[in-house]
Computed example of a mutant assay.
Amino acid sequence: MSEMTAAQAGRALAAERRPSGALGDRIFHGVTAVSALIVLALIGGIAISLLIGAWPALEKFGFAFLTSTQWNPVTDEYGALVAIFGTLVTSALAMLIAVPVSFGIALFVTELAPLWLRRPVSTAIELLAAIPSIIYGMWGLFVLAPVLAEYVQPWLLDTFGEVPLIGLIIAGPPIGIGVFTAGMILAIMVIPFITAVMRDTFEVVPPVLKESSYALGATTWEVVRSVVLPYTKTGVIGGIMLGLGRALGETMAVTFVIGNAHSIHAGLFYPGNSISAALANEFTEAAGGLYTSALIALGLVLFVITLVVLVLARLLLLRLSARQGQRP
């Protein structure tokens, strides 16, 4: 009788707790849903505000705003092509430099470095991520740009200037200020973010998977290529997209070193401009309504570019998941 009483008491206690647990789950679900809706509302509000502010410029110039290289506040002629070109080129150059370097650092920290060296290297990476962007810009202007102008750019021009394709890419005056310098600054800035994500992602790979591969005679690179990367590809791509988003929207560091010239050149050593740099330099001087609207339209273009990049990254991840038979 006592055992039956204890069992009944246990069931009664569980029945008493179940409604409160269900209520807690519903509250938690509601809070998280509201948080997600707040994010969507903020993004939608930003998009609507940009569209309203940019509408006068878009209405006057139409699609030509995206294809024109004119930027003349005196005659109220504005085009976004120069800024779009500079944004895409500097970001692409930054990722071309940053992704291999970040991958190498993350691989060294997680697989090759001795235990006593892993923590100092990881701490240094985190410190680089904490440096304000304006400090990077000042360092680029007063330290990196003179070094590039005196040593790196003249050597590149003398060595590869006559090579047909490479010579066209590195053409321009070796003054240390230009698209090339801006791309290098961006690469230095995004390396800590990409490296930190890759490092944390590599560390979650189950040790038994790597140890099994080593036991079968695989080399370190074979383990990384066949075990680590397939297991962590989602995190790796996420880290790269995080770095690309930072590169696309970076303002002050690029403003210091890109040259702020409204012109398009094939050579990376020429001065150029970007969307964020144009906004930083000219927004305080925008007195006319059309001038301000054109700058807001640049911000809208940057918003759309970032959104497209994130959507493409998501589609890539879905495709990779589908190939593995996972639920997309």
Results as ranks from 00 to 15, higher is better:
L107Y: 06
M184I: 15
T220I: 04
L13V: 14
L128D: 08
S49M: 08
S263T: 12
A57P: 15
I194R: 12
E111G: 01
A36Y: 08
P271G: 03
G140W: 08
V101I: 15
F142A: 15
E285P: 05
L242H: 05
G45Y: 05
V224I: 05
A12E: 12
G239L: 03
V311R: 09
W221V: 06
Q70G: 11
E203A: 01
A106S: 15
S91C: 13
I175R: 09
S2H: 10
P207V: 02
I170T: 06
R18V: 01
E16M: 05
D200I: 03
L268S: 06
A261K: 15
A47G: 02
E282R: 00
G272K: 06
P206Q: 04
I237C: 07
F193H: 07
N281L: 12
R18M: 02
V311S: 09
R246Q: 02
I191N: 00
P120C: 02
R118T: 09
L268K: 07
S276G: 08
T69K: 13
Q8P: 06
Y291M: 14
T67I: 05
W71P: 03
V147L: 02
G235M: 04
G176R: 04
V308I: 15
T90L: 10
L229K: 00
V309W: 06
L112W: 03
I38M: 13
G79A: 11
N273S: 14
S212F: 00
G325R: 12
G45P: 07
F63I: 10
N281P: 04
G10H: 06
I185A: 06
V254Y: 05
P56F: 14
G245V: 02
L310A: 14
E285F: 12
R17T: 06
L127E: 12
A171K: 13
L216T: 15
L107C: 05
L107T: 00
A171Y: 11
R118V: 11
W155H: 12
A9E: 15
R26T: 00
S226G: 00
R199A: 13
R119Y: 05
T75Q: 12
I275W: 13
S122H: 06
I237E: 03
P56T: 15
T232P: 00
R319M: 00
N281Y: 10
T220K: 08
M1H: 11
A6N: 12
V109C: 09
S276T: 07
F269C: 06
A278K: 12
S133V: 05
E111Q: 08
E203F: 04
V143F: 14
F180L: 10
L81C: 11
D158Y: 01
L23Q: 05
G86A: 08
G45T: 01
V301L: 13
G53D: 07
R246Y: 01
P271Q: 05
I264P: 05
